[in-house]
Design a protein around this nucleic acid. Structure first.
Lengths: 173, 173
DNA sequence: GCAGTTAGGTTCAGTTTCTGAACTTAGCGT
DNA sequence: ACGCTAAGTTCAGAAACTGAACCTAACTGC
């Protein structure tokens, strides 16, 4: 276990990337980490991912330097994105944008805007309002037209994201 | 078969995207399609992917509108990217860029430059040489510093990519 | 027009991976 | 010490992947 899956295809950079983040669930975990999810139980509750899989994926992500595992009080360790993990934001954003383009007829359920001025951000990561070049921490996830109000028994993450939330701001369960 | 895997996680656009292109091999197939691979046998030879998997993934990609299956002479059908498929280029490019950044200490094995003037291209897709905003068809895949010369028994795709090759230009086996 | 070749699959048995539920373990508050 | 909680581990059944062998519909050469 904890071995990385191997596309023997003469290692191009895409195969390398997919060996790290290409397995089922992995990119969703990373996305949740951008939302600010840090704790095991919160990943489980939000993604409804089997605990065994989450455990294995988190280990792989830590091992490959995308996440860091930091001890908390007691067993409450938390997982946070490293710089290498944060560097995945452009890739995540373009994948999300493709889904928005083709699978969100009523508009996206979530916008990613410049947290400071609510400006839209172009593909290069430049805020159309203020012209600044943004990094992941400058974005806010904001409910879009297709967002649905969270049910009464929704998990913390869903409830937190029902209102604008700056990326990488910890969501505490 | 041909059912799409389901992340029941309240369908955000990333989950939707991953349901289409998130399975093992799928993005490598799409990348090869950008290189100009169109035929079943060429995908098999270049990716060394099991034929059963390739068959299933191609069906899924056609079904979801990323590829189109076009009849050729006899059984030589070819698969080509649709506009929806071509729209995946920015996502593919950012994923490749991440791999280049962290897993290519001696430089990438492949650059993606503006085919007309060999200019580098920024994250937004603007050529730094001529300033034009490029689409996938304007790029050329060019061997980088870490490229290795193809062996004598290399497949057509590897041999074709050993010299600059414009994206989406068909590679004929 | 028939035999051989080629391309694009399908089938199948063995292996790996995923899933969901139940169980374990370590620290914390009282 | 007692139970609670958070973070895993274990396990059996289901699904997906793998590699090799097989199949079949066009073409090709004769």
């Amino acid at each position: 276990m904890a071995t990385v899956r191997d596309y023997s295809v003469e290692h191009c950079s895409l195969a390398r990337t997919l060996e790290i983040v290409g397995e089922r669930w992995t990119l969703l975990i990373v996305r949740d980490a951008f939302y600010g999810v840090q704790r095991f139980a919160d990943f489980v509750a939000h993604l409804r991912i089997p605990r065994a899989i989450l455990s294995e994926r988190l280990s792989l992500l830590v091992e490959s330097g995308v996440l860091a595992k930091e001890p908390g009080p007691g067993r409450r360790e938390h997982y946070t994105l490293t710089d290498k993990g944060i560097a995945l934001w452009p890739a995540l954003r373009t994948l999300i944008a493709w889904g928005d383009q083709f699978y969100a007829p009523n508009g996206p359920r979530r916008y990613f805007l410049h947290a400071d001025d609510n400006g839209e951000v172009d593909q290069a990561g430049t805020c159309l309002e203020c012209g600044k070049l943004l990094s992941a921490r400058d974005y806010a996830a904001v409910p879009g037209p297709a967002a649905r109000p969270p049910g009464p028994d929704a998990d913390v993450v869903t409830r937190t994201l029902a209102r604008p939330h700056r990326l990488l701001d910890p969501i505490t369960g």
